[in-house]
Amino acid sequence: MNVFRLTGDLSHLAAIIILLLKIWKTRSCAGISGKSQILFAVVFTSRYLDLLTSFISLYNTSMKVIYIGCAYATLYFVYMKFKATYDGNHDTFRVEFLLVPVGGLSFLVNHDFSPLEILWTFSIYLESVAILPQLFMISKTGEAETITTHYLFFLGLYRALYLFNWIWRFYFEGFFDMIAIVAGLVQTILYCDFFYLYITKVLKGKKLSLPA
């Protein structure tokens, strides 16, 4: 555990909590892509199956349980409790275009051809692109609520901090995992355009809106 890893995890947790609170307080999931939230629930579920097979630490177990719990709570909000406010008309990204290649790739490029390892690999690859339906929705509507941009900022920051964590671990532990690093790089790059808009607009008190 190093400072980048810890702040990365906390940033991830902050993102998840911000989204849940936003929906709860406003009683609305307008502007949120349910499809991205489904993908994140699939990511956590397929990655954290090792909860059933191995114990690493109390921290590790509690964070995994919290992430999974929050992911399903978000899905419950979007598709059941606040379904009337869900903007499905704008949530039109075709997720099969992500699931099929990512599924195929996890069978082809993995550390070990075993069910748990393939599912872990699948989750790493899927996470790297799971935000695309949300970004697609924003590009379609041309705007995002400020609170939604805070959610996206912390969600993007988390993987960027993990990149520093992996540099740290490579230097001080000689450890690296090429699958996680490449997927993490792709994931962070996908947020770059958003980071630019967040810094130049949202942090200056303006609403995030895209030119028509």
Partner: peptide, 10 residues
């Protein structure tokens, strides 16, 4: 093996 270490990450 090296990759099991990654499982300690989230």
């Amino acid at each position: 093996c090296h990759h099991t270490q990654a499982k300690d990450e989230l």
